[in-house]
Structures are given as structure tokens and as C-alpha cells.
Design a protein around this nucleic acid. Sequence first.
DNA 1: CAGTGAGCGAGCTTCCGCTTGACTT
Length: 921
Amino acid sequence: MIVESPAKARKIASYLGSNFVVESSRGHIRDLPSGAADVPAKYKGQPWARLGVDVDNDFEPLYLVTPDKKATVTELKDALKEVDELYLATDGDREGEAIAWHLMETLKPKVPVRRMVFHEITESAIQSAAANPRELDRDLVDAQETRRILDRLYGYEVSPVLWKKVMPKLSAGRVQSVATRIVVERERERIKFVPAEYWDISATMDAGPDAEPRRFGARLVSVDGAKLATGRDFGPDGRLKNDDVRLLNEAEARRLATGLTDARLSVSSVEEKPYTRKPYAPFMTSTLQQEASRKLRFSADRTMRTAQRLYENGYITYMRTDSTTLSETAITAARNQARDLYGDEYLSPQPRQYNRKVKNAQEAHEAIRPAGESFRTPGQVAAELDTDGYKLYELIWQRTIASQMADAKGTTLSVRITGTSADGEECTFAASGRTITFAGFLKAYVEAVDSEAGGVADDAESRLPRLAQYQAVTAPELSPDGHSTNPPPRYTEASLVKALEELGIGRPSTYASIISTVQDRGYVWKKGSALVPSWVAFAVVGLMEKHFGRLVDYDFTAALEDELDRIAEGRQQRTKWLSGFYFGGEVGPDDSIGRAGGLKKLVGSSVEEIDAREVNSIPMFTDDDGRTVYVRVGRYGPYLERPLSDSESQRANLPDDLPPDELDIQIAEKLFATPMEGRSLGTDPETGHEVLAKEGRFGPYVTEVLPEGSKGKPRTGSLLKSMSLDTVTIDDALKLLALPRVVGTDPESGTEITAQNGRFGPYLKRGSDSRSLDTEEQIFTVTLEEALKLYAQPKQRGRRAAAAPLRELGDDPDSGKPLVIKDGRFGPYVTDGETNASLRKGDSVEELTIDRAVELIAERRAKAPAKKKTASKSKSTASKSTSSKTTASKSSSSKSSSSNGSKTTKSGTTRKRTTSSSKQS
DNA sequence: CAGTGAGCGAGCTTCCGCTTGACTT
């Protein structure tokens, strides 16, 4: 029998006895290649190798055994030799069915194969599943394959658009892009939000010496029959949503409070209602993550790591589940324990089963609960667990027990107190109370509430005295109270997971990794527990909404799931649907992507149409002179920009840790007024100018601050390799600022020879003729004589003094040319003297065989003609989009970021620099 | 976002969902 998890295999083995060998696949064993580099030589040259899916041939996927699963597959194959029947007992959901199919394809079993499914790990469930095997469900596998291919096409087609238009290494995907969008949308709401102020009166009432409690709090809720405005009466624009409420300002509130001081107050109404609260459903992954976040302050990742350990060691059931169902044995165990601990009275009269359906739930597992047929109390396991494990176990145990307990009961009381102010206004106060008469399940477990959302815990009580209608009360304290409305709170890990789950996006096994993906890509950062979107996220989400709107719709996954269901039911063809999605055309009920002409066309036209400058400019607000202030996302981080004239604009760095919704015009003006920061090194004794050390586009450098109004540009100089920003001194800086150094005059031409540091290192310059120097030190020491000697030699071309090869491989068996591995700008490569081919990901300098070298060179040679084509193509795109876009703005900076062409060039420059410096070290 | 003078062999980045162990410190 093969199951998915080793822990599950051990458990099942104990039920099945020695006639069975139970092994595990440890999840999926095969997948699409992660990139062209992983594609076997046979398919290397294929146009679809990058995708791993042959889109032109029925979207035929190329599956490879995942590298880390090779050992598992070998084990399984070996085990298969010893058995006479194979049970594929992977999970009963879409992914589980696919794993079973991949196992069939990979293991090619010669013995009879049966597919069996169980939803809980109990002896009876397994026995009955084994007795009722079924066939592999090819339609369900098709649905999984469609999901996999769609995710690949989406991710691997859209991400490159972001690399070209925003920044390299960014990513887009069905799940992460929507997750990012959710966080960005919330920040946009917060930016737009206009707070409103409103006032009321909070009062302490006195019901007389016999009342218990004698004093209680109440709040003014209406004046002359008009309801007072409270927070929820305001829209996000700070205006009242409707006019039938009365808005009190501070002066009015104070006047009323004074006017009510000696007023006669009496109870105008008393309303009592029973209060009932049902227990919460047992945990599934999302609710566990939310509660562990609220109660234990665990991140989603920490919760899952802790739960994994508890699961592996047999303390809890499986922790990646979207089901709240408890097995019969679990219900019995929970009921027994509830009875033992709290007594019969606290037990729910009937066993409770929770069937809350989560969108797109697959329900292959039970709820998360203590393992076993009778639960161990937290006290019993405390000694065996670490702190985190104990806390999480206790949470799961309490929630499970509580789920079988009785409803909590009580009463809520709602009281109105009315009086007339000195000015003749009729004022009504409200007080509410809640008493819990029977705690029921609340005795075992109370769900935490989000403090930011202002919720009230289910067991919170507020007591009011017994009051009768028309009873007179006094108000010893009346204080005017000012409030202001708050923007919607930022998402936390837990609330984002909840939002995703409600949209049916992501799976229990991926919630925690979604959070890390959006952080790793730089889309979201954490401020305390709040998730704050980056400016890059604004740019990317803006691009996606404008050009790939359907793909970031909140219901895109839901629509996809409907289609996958149709495929799983055999009512829709996998290929037909994928073809509609990718190439356009009819795709079924949800063909909004098809109508747009399909993903492939959309990506193609996006690359032409999207204006990178526009995408990366986020208009924020207008300054006092009516100019728009933009946040622009550059390659060196976000900055502020506003136009000053047609050709000039003002810029300022944005601090990394400033949340977007805190950027307002005041902060912007302050940043514009602050010069780009840098460390002051002191003053130049000759000029009196302050000297700064700064981090710039081309790395660390020093510069001087010119006095206000002085003309000319400040002198600058890059730090030498031997210097660093932290340690550079004023003396070093003065030396650098004094460059270029005049070495002397060439006696022949009468031209000055200077020494300086440049993009490619130290060099000499004589007119337009240059020579590289070997060391930076030489800039300061080289003599005229030595310089002339260098000029006497022809300019060095290419690699200076051809570095020795890293390794000699011997001669090519076919051509007889010697093959050597050399180190180059882009890392090690193998060459036969004519064709150069980089070593690939899996290759190493030490272990490269001559056969592999020949293969690499042959591949490179096969591609060679394509090189010129690509180069000229990218050039033409660049000039095209540049000329068409920069007519209005002439600044050079706008040119440099307005097209993908120039971006590529720039990034090439940067990388060169990195490579050359790493070579030096 | 500081502004300077070569010449040259490109390839990779990226998706989602299923699951642990093999590493090092």
C-alpha cells in the first residue's frame, strides 16, 4: 500500500498487520521541469522547453521525477518486487488522484493495482476502504493536470512581462498575484480614507442605593428623536452616508452635557433577550493558523512547523485539511473527556458534526484534533512536548473538546434612558448588558477576537442592574466624548489567509508559503504583524489589473474550479479548455479569457503596448502649485518625483520603512527638501565644502556639497575597491575628489595624460586614447615614463594576458580541437576555440566530462544564428518605444526607464560591474 | 538617484500543490 505521508504509513501499518507493506510517496513524485535547464537533451531545442508543456500538441506535459524524489521512487520500485498486489491509497482529492496516476506511470507495476480511499485513519475506515477498491479516475487526474498546466502557463508567461516592464526576478501567479492585490487594495483604501470626527456623551448612571450594581455606563444615542451619528454612519470619504442622523460637534456635545447636568432622567424602555452561542467548529488549517496567530502570536509558518512535529509524533491528526468533520471515534473521545472534566450538564445533548463548507474544499482529511481513540490531556503530554508544541496541542485539544459541549446561554439587556436638557432637547441614552447564565462550551474554549477590528469576546459580560420602565435614575457623570473613524485595518497573516480561503484561493498546504512568497518577492513586508504592500507591489498590481484584469479577478479561481469540476465530471475536455485559455476562442461558460484572444496573444501584445514608465509611476497627490507628485519604482528602489519644467524634475529618496498610506504631501515636501542623505566626512580645507560619502547608482562614492546658488557640478569620485562606505576617511575622499591626476604631458602630441578611475577600473587617458592600469594604486603613483611605455604598446583587446584555463579536457573526438574550461564574465564556460558554451546549472568545473562538453558546444552552435536576431530585435523595440513615448518629456532619465530596451542595457552594465569586482576578489 | 573609456562567449529569473528529510550550526 502506498500513501502520501510516512507518518500515516506507520499508523496504517499498525492496523493492517504483516500481510501488508505500507510505504509512502512523500507527496508528488513527478512534476513539470522547473525550467529549460532541466529538460532532457531530447527536448532541449523545442520551442516549448521553457514551459515544459507542448502547447501545440494537445498541451502534452513533460513530467520528470522530481530530483529529491529519485530515492523514494527507487525504494518504491524495490518494494514492489516483493509484493503480489498494489493498493494506491493516496488522498481522495484531485491531487491525491494525480499522485496515484503518477505512481502508476512511474512504477509500471506488473502486479494487480487497486485504488482505495479513506478519509480518516481508523482501523475500521481502512479495513472498509481496502475491501471496497475502485478504479483510478482519469477524469479527476485530467482536472489536476489542467490545474497544473494552467498555473504553469499563467506563471511562466506573465512573470517575464514583469521582468521586462518592472524588475527582473518578479513573479506572477494565480494565487500570489491575487494575494498581493488584496493587500494593495486595502492600502489604497487606507490612502483614500478620510477620517471623520463625531462626538457623543458618555455617562455614568446611578440607579439608587438598592440597585446592584448601582452604577453603570450609558451613551447618548439620540437627540430630539434623531439618531446620533456614529462611526458606521460615515463613508470612507469622511462624509455621512445619509442625512437622517444628527452629527454632534464638540461644542454641541459640551453644551448638551452641561444642559443635562441636573435634568430628570428616567428609564424609557427595557428589552431583554435570551443569548445563545454555539461552539465553534473544530480546527482546519486556516482556522488553526488564525487562532494560533491571535492567541499565541504564531506566524502561519511557525504554526505549521509546530503542527507537523505534533503530527509526526502522533499527537494530532493531519494538519493540512479543509474539513471540520470529526470521525465517530473522535466525537466519542471528545464527549467522554468533556463529561469527565465538566460533567453531563456541560455536554451537548447530541453529538455535533460540523459541515461548514469551505469554498472549493476537497475534504480528503478529518478536522485537526488530538490523535487517538481517547485524547490525552495537555497535562498528560506536557512533559513530552516543547513549549510551542504544548501550546498548540492545548489549543487544538480545547477546541475539539469544546466542539462537543453545550451551547452557552444568557441574556442580553438593552435599556434606554431619556431626559430633557436645559435647552429643551430630548436626549436618549442607551446601555446594554450581557449576562451569561450558563457558560457551556465557553468554559473550555473562547475564540480570540481581532483587537483591531474592535470585536467583543463571546464570554465578555457587562452587567446592568434590574431596571423598570419609568424608573428614575441620575447621571452623576456626563462627559463629552470625541471619536474619529478609522481606516480599514491592514491584513495580518491570519486575516489574509482567511480572505484567501473565503475566495477559494490556495490550499491548506500552501497558505503559509503564499505568505512567504509575497514577502520573498518584495511585494509585502511586515510591520509588526501587519502586512504592508511595497511600491513594487503597487506597480505590479496596477499592471496586472490594467492588462491582465481577468487573471487577478477575485473570482478567477472560483471560475476555474467550476471548469475543473466539469472536467472531473467528464463534461469538459481538458485540451479544449486549455486551448481556449491559451490560444483564445470558445472555452465554455467562463470564456472571458477566450474573448480576449487567449493568454498567449495577451502576453505578446502586452510586451509591445505596456509603457514601463507609466506602470512604474504611481500618482499620489497634487502639491500646492498643482503639480502631480509621483512615486516611481526605479531599479534602485522607490523615489518621489514631480515635474518642475518640461525637461527637469525634482526627486527624493523614499525611506524603505515608510508604509504607503503614511506618505502625504507634508512628508513628501520634507523629503524633497532633504538632500539625498549621505555620511558627512568633514570639510575640504581648500574649498570649505562639506564632503559626503554616499551610495549611488554605480556603487559607493564621495561627493562635495556646493554652497547654495553656486554654479557648476559638485566633484565626485567612486570609492576604490579597498575602501568601504563605513570606513572611508576625509583624506581618502580628498584624494578621490582631486582626480583625474595629471601624469604629465606627452612630448610628442603635447596632450595631457591623466590617470583616473572609471567604469572598468583604473585607466590612463590621452585625448580620446585610453589604456587600462593594473591597480588602483597606480592612479596615484604612475609616472609619465611608465605611462608613455603603456601608450607605446597597442591597446589590449579582450582578456588581458589570456587567463589560464580552469581545466583542460582534452581534444574533441570529432574535430580534434582542444576543449578547455575557462572562467568568464558569466561564469565558467567550455570552448573549442570557436564556440563558447556556458556550463549549465547541474554542471561543475571539476566533474564536466568531455562528452558533456561536446554536447554543450553542439547545442550552443545550433543556436548561434539566433543570436544576431535577438540582439537586433531588442534594439529596434527599444528605439521604437523610446521615440514614440518621450516626445513630451526630454529628460534623459525618462528615456532610460521608458522602454524595455534601455532597461536591458542598463542591467547589463550593472552585472558587468558585479562580475568584474567578484573576479578581483 | 554621480557620469566615465573597452570589448565581448549568455542564460536565468518565474508558477501551484503534494510531501519530508538531509544538511549545518
